[in-house]
Design a protein around this nucleic acid. Structure first.
Lengths: 226, 226
DNA sequence: AAACATATTTTTGCGGGGATAAAAATAATG
DNA sequence: CATTATTTTTATCCCCGCAAAAATATGTTT
């Protein structure tokens, strides 16, 4: 089935909303509208059409989930997006904060042979520049348990797994303080009143991280205690 | 000015029609419709809109030419198309007959920084895989005198400059008989009744070339006489 | 030159995709 | 039950496609 650019964007948005939670959750009309910067009336209209095509399960007045077919489509879009992001950074030398909008265009070019060859050309990468997993050729999405950085408590060690790609300024900031996928740190302290945390790295550098920032970073807790 | 995909395709078609002739010629509604596989009514409508945007000079009931602004847009589209074709062949390993449709998608992704970096990544190529010139970063299109292969006469030597990229089967055939940009040959004979020609290469191989084929190949005549 | 025939182009009216605001319907909550 | 938030429907708009009809250009004949 050949989907329009707009339909693809809807499926991706619905996938992202579902995937943002731990468990598969229904995406609401308002949530989709907010993420896509469009009006709920437009969303409601499109949800009906996508259900008619068998891509969504629609609970009227409740929300939608992806069908098996819709999930395949969404995962292929995500695969294309993240492969192109890898290309933009590793082949063309873009910074990780410059690639989102470009990849949003490239992701809609969907000749299967192109994506297969791009994947091979890049060396079959498993993660994009922000640390997000790239669905494989068979559109399987591996499970990888992570927790938001802001759920860490004082004294815990952690490794950055991935960061939200949405905000240009946030990505620049994370780059400056070297909080990138793979970075290790431990939590020196957590402020009660605003949930900001102080972290320290092995090189001794210390940073104060606001809640807004730590909410955009996914980590894996490490057992090592100093 | 941000152009829709459709508008871009119209500008490219008009450019191609104009460029196919030696001198800048007006593109007719019918010619545009034929090239774009659409109806003259749709073309006529779009020509009016593109003139309103200052991209075309429109002689009602006669034809259109690109304005300076329209020409810049068209050349940038052609530049993107041909750079991506180079990428598809030289980086991803596609054959030259497999790339046209994919490049038609990629050409619409038009972030200037992306194209600049792609150009540098590819080593600032001047020709695409079919031998067509790639407009430079400042959208200058170098002049390169060529003549159609079917205008050669018996005994003349020539070098292939470029070939039409449109037909998959033709490109496969040209690849088989090694009639590619850079190939040298001389015309052994030309049949009067169907304009087919017999050519010979330095390795002694001989081929009979029909008029349809020789009409799709541009050559440069060489002075060397055997 | 005038008259006619043919080819081409433009206009008109209309349909689908996709967006919107405004209004109506439904769900959630006190 | 009443209020509020959310969702859906309705009516409308723009982009871009089409067929049919009207307008214009071109070529031929007299």
């Amino acid at each position: 089935m050949q989907l329009s650019r707009t339909e693809q964007n809807y499926l991706k948005a619905i996938y992202m909303i579902s995937a943002s939670s731990t468990e598969a959750v229904e995406a609401s009309t308002n949530a989709i509208a907010a993420r896509m910067d469009t009006r709920p009336a437009s969303v409601s209209d499109m949800l009906r059409r996508l259900s008619d095509k068998g891509l969504l399960n629609h609970n009227r007045y409740k929300g939608v989930t992806l069908t098996e077919s819709g999930m395949q489509q969404a995962l292929f879009i995500v695969r294309r997006h993240r492969l192109w992001e890898h290309f933009l950074v590793h082949s063309l030398g873009f910074r990780w904060n410059e690639i989102h909008e470009i990849a949003e265009e490239l992701e809609h070019v969907s000749h299967p042979e192109l994506i297969a060859r791009l994947d091979a050309f890049l060396g079959n990468p498993t993660e994009d520049p922000h640390g997000e997993l790239i669905p494989g050729a068979h559109l399987q999405m591996p499970h990888r348990p992570t927790k938001p950085m802001n759920s860490l408590i004082s004294g815990e060690h952690a490794r950055v797994v991935c960061v939200d790609e949405g905000s240009d300024v946030l990505l620049k900031y994370l780059d400056e303080i070297e909080l990138r996928p793979g970075s290790h740190f431990h939590v020196v302290s957590v402020e009660k009143f605003d949930n900001s945390m102080r972290i320290r790295r092995e090189d001794g550098s210390e940073w104060r991280i606001t809640r807004e920032v730590s909410n955009s970073v996914q980590v894996k807790r490490l057992d090592r205690m100093p």
